[in-house]
Nucleic acid binder design. Sequence first.
DNA 1: GGAATAGGTGGACGTCGCGTCCAGTTATAA
DNA 2: TTATAACTGGACGCGACGTCCACCTATTCC
Lengths: 187, 187
Amino acid sequence: MREQGERADAAKNRARVLAAAAELFRDRPAETVTMEDIARAAGVGKGTLYRRYPSREAIAVALLDDHERALQEQLIAGPPPLGPGAPPAERLATFYRAVTDLLEQHGHLALAGETGARRFGTGAYGFWRAHVGSLLTAAGIAEGRAALVDLLLAPLAPELYRYQRDAGLSSRQIADGLTVLAERVLA
Amino acid sequence: MREQGERADAAKNRARVLAAAAELFRDRPAETVTMEDIARAAGVGKGTLYRRYPSREAIAVALLDDHERALQEQLIAGPPPLGPGAPPAERLATFYRAVTDLLEQHGHLALAGETGARRFGTGAYGFWRAHVGSLLTAAGIAEGRAALVDLLLAPLAPELYRYQRDAGLSSRQIADGLTVLAERVLA
DNA sequence: GGAATAGGTGGACGTCGCGTCCAGTTATAA
DNA sequence: TTATAACTGGACGCGACGTCCACCTATTCC
């Protein structure tokens, strides 16, 4: 699926690692899952595990990848308002909602892999930056643009979503708040 | 300074610990400073250190405390636009700028202590929540209020500030972006 | 089909930071 | 001065990390 030069046995082990990690991350808090746990659950040695994934975070990012890529395609070429064709404010609100859904479904993976400052280094973040940047331009907002892009992505931090959900807010309430934000900022 | 029942030698050691930690945090990245480093630099044993501070984070929070309290007083009783009396949008923008300044000066401490999800548990965060909540009310924004409070505080995450600064944005640019945000959201 | 080889495998091992524990010490009260 | 409570500091056990390397196995080339 990723490397074609990959040997058959290696590919099988990669799949087992990902499957085992997915299950572990589903079952318990990310920070309690050790590399050794994943190796054992996958029936693989630590050396093998480290050969491919240098850290727990890298595994979580690999698991998230598919879901994030699907969203990226929608943003580029999907139907409006997620894809091109709708007014910027509406597109931003829809984007917010889509990420919210993603966090609701796969938040545990995001918390395992894209926490804190690491988040800014991922490919997904770069893509989202470009997306929001283009929406700002489309809305005719030039002032403070460079900083605004990141400021508008900050509310999507996985930790924040988790905190708000734990504080009793529903997924709907959070998405609604983000909608208000989107509409007011992109006027 | 904190406990009056504290023995003289204990108080001296507390001061030494805080001074040593402040210096270490200033000199190198927070995550490379170990509890053992702090103990050694303070000329104190690990047991003594742990007696007062359960973690590196707790020490950083203690060091930040003074600065944050000063801001809190300004917000409650200081002159406008930071304190009461100015229109909500202006007060939010000023608040944003004040926190930005704080991050510029003491960001290393914030990164050492109030990173990720831990941030939401601090007293300062609770206070800021209340502040922004009251500004939302004053601005007549009821829709999505519960979630909006946290969403408007998200851009102040220490990791984000550091990331933006490292990406080449000036403190000024970030503050300007925040000002645009404040003015647009609180109309 | 059989060697050669590049790549894959796994677990033992060294290292490091954490946090505890407790025997000895010192301030404070009686 | 003695009794007591609080404080001190370093030795220690633990757990996770990440490396290393001797041993396999799929693949390639003749």
